[in-house]
Write a protein that binds this DNA or RNA. Structure first.
Lengths: 404, 404
DNA sequence: TTATTTTTTTTGAAACTCAAATTAAATAAT
DNA sequence: ATTATTTAATTTGAGTTTCAAAAAAAATAA
């Protein structure tokens, strides 16, 4: 939450190297001190000092020396890793019909994944908070854990929010706008609770457990009911001035175009969202030919020209929206994440190729595109990643201020 | 140039506070030590130490104590400012038909502005370098200066380039693609020479001399022959992974739309660029009714529906492109910069209002929009700002490593 | 056994920052 | 005039952090 506050040079310094070492260890999985020094440009002497602090605090541990991989001579390197038992972490994803909870250890290893149904639709902040509590308690009970032992929880939800403040401008899970949900949750949970947009959480998962160590600038585009985006700049989530940027779904792809849920016209979502696909397929033919996307896809497979045309346009619009982001951002990598039927079509090679063609052409490699067809658990995993990072930062600060 | 190289913690620290203090002084114009301490969260003791170094190095100077503004009692504060005489700086803008050179002192105060015509069109790297040398020599001669006394020069030009490497993928001033122009210039000039996209230079001018001290995330959109954009994130120019992002002019606003100079279809530039406006006005009516934009504007003023329709569409497309950037970036401020006729129309209240309507609506203030109708000198001033910043960074590094 | 190699730790010094004390330079009060 | 008060700037001394160099540790090679 309170990430953006300015720090004086002395405070900043005290935290920075420790954090850097710790992040390097986590990113590597296992790594010897000498390699940390090389990766971070911190001297071996300092690495020894810092890792000694982290070891004493129980945040990391030495790996048994089996991995004498190089088989050269010389003193064998001792690998370090994050100590999983250090903390219990909860990640939660609120979707329309369910709450998915993932309990992990401090390394991100899954201990339990649990899903409870939601009444559906939008609820009041109070009700939603209660449902979150129930979900957490149920998950803990299933894993035979005490909720009080959990060191931090992150919750991912669709909507427009200022994650640093925990303030939700709008969310499809809430029946009110402008809710200071973070503050409300803080009162009802003993542990620190973090909130974020779900696309940002996928980005965080990519940073911590995916290819984020090699890419410092990338974007994550999620296709679910709507289209979401997370932006990573300099290995950090970019949140915009008001905390509500990255609204790819509502960028305009057609002047005075199709009507969107948000009330405006020509939004990308109004062409590629599932409701938009069904609307076009049905309204155009005058009768309700398709009740769901599966039917629409089946029709396309059968050679139905109208279905094909609808999906083709959605694909082209999606390519156009992606190309615009690439032209603006020049990311190293694009991660497409989703699980629904539409996702398969929108992440097809044909669409990606079209996107590539629409990017300003220079003699430099175009961004990598990675497709993650992860299931529902991905979102909760992203939330857990977020909580792990936040808890790490809190703990590092403690270590820096206590131990010497 | 070599901005992106990683630094070890000790190197970073040595530079960071000095740089921060220096930037604070420049941003403020004049500021007392006690206020520097407050602004930077650096302790007064350290501010004294750092400013003593900077004074000894001749980079700053004390202001005569006339400005006893507060008229309270107590020891009067002594204001510090950047020492103008410390360095001579050159900023240069290459446009299609001229090279504009601005010589400033280290404060950015203009000493001389000089323009020489260019043969026009595209030239070879060698010729362009010679023309740059001529421009610099002519300017220095006019100001009775020795080119050897200039501490740094920055050159702004239209095109797609990787400013950190000084590598030009494509520029309208060069007849070849993929030129390592920075390296070439480095061989032909004694001073450090920096290259950047012109929109980025306007952003830099805004950061150093404009409202950049209060805004850390903003974008600059330039309307000249084409549409350019500079992105500032965290008070730093964002350059993308390959150094070639921010291509607002080539974001697509219409699927399979109008043909653009770049060979693609539906680019924003293909609707709002001057050539695009003339093309539409003339091709549509079948005869060449307008030879230049002035004629088109006059026609609109006379009530010509065709002219009005052409310009209206350009305005809407521009608003759409801007709205897309806002939806993606959520900047605090948008700076619209330009001087041409089209600029007046594209920066009109009507267009801005339209843009505002197309942004995702949340209960938070929309970005400020500032319109800079600066003339040709603006670009060179931006280049000077860039050179000043780079030379400052070099000098600070020297001070940090020499003095104690 | 001894030499060599490589990793890790220890040591001592240098740099940076800051809190607290001190000095400097003004006005207000007496 | 002189003293008190106020505010800014500097000095001092201590605490951190970092690092280079030296030393120690732990393996293999000779």
């Amino acid at each position: 939450m309170a990430r953006l506050q300015r720090l004086s040079p002395s405070d900043e310094l005290r935290e920075s190297s420790r954090l850097q070492v710790f992040e390097t260890i986590r990113a590597a999985g296992q790594i010897a001190r000498i390699d940390i020094a090389q990766a971070t440009l911190i001297s071996p002497a300092t690495v020894t000092a810092i890792t000694a602090d982290l070891l004493a605090a129980g945040m990391i541990e030495e790996v048994s020396p089996e991995a004498a991989k190089g088989a050269k001579r010389g003193r064998p390197r001792v690998a370090l890793k994050v100590r999983g038992q250090a903390h219990l972490i909860a990640g939660m994803k609120l979707s329309h019909h369910a709450i998915t909870t993932l309990i992990t250890d401090f390394e991100g290893t899954e201990l339990l994944c649990h899903e409870i149904p939601l009444p559906g639709g939008q609820s009041s902040p109070e009700d939603l908070c209660q449902q979150i509590q129930s979900a957490l308690n149920a998950s803990c009970a299933a894993a035979d854990l005490d909720p009080a032992d959990i060191s931090g929880m992150a919750i991912g939800m669709a909507g427009v929010m200022d994650a640093d403040r925990g303030f939700i401008y709008w969310s499809s899970s809430l029946n009110q706008r402008n809710v200071d949900f973070g503050a409300y949750l803080a009162q009802h949970f003993a542990m620190p609770v973090f909130i974020d947009n779900d696309a940002n959480l996928v980005a965080k998962a990519e940073l911590l457990f995916g290819h984020g160590d090699r890419h410092t600038n990338f974007i994550v585009v999620t296709v679910e009911h709507g289209v979401g985006m997370g932006i990573v700049i300099n290995s950090q989530i970019y949140r915009g001035a008001r905390g509500c940027g990255a609204e790819l779904g509502h960028t305009k792809v057609q002047l005075e175009g199709a009507l969107c849920q948000c009330g405006q016209r020509g939004c990308l979502e109004a062409y590629v969202g599932d409701y938009a696909l069904l609307r076009e397929a049905n309204v155009t033919s005058g009768v309700e030919r398709h009740r769901d996307l599966a039917s629409l896809y089946a029709a396309m497979a059968d050679g139905d020209m109208m279905a094909r045309s609808t999906l083709d346009r959605a694909g082209r619009m999606f390519a156009m929206g992606l190309a615009n982001v690439v032209n603006i951002f020049d990311p190293q990598m694009i991660v497409l994440a989703g699980a629904q039927l539409a996702f398969g079509y929108l992440s097809s090679d044909k669409v990606i190729e079209e996107m590539r063609r629409w990017v300003v052409q220079v003699d430099a490699p175009l961004p990598d595109v990675r497709v993650h067809g992860w299931g529902n658990k991905m979102w909760a995993k992203g939330a857990a990643a977020h909580a792990i990072e936040e808890v790490s930062a809190l703990r590092i600060r403690e270590v820096a201020n206590h131990a010497g």
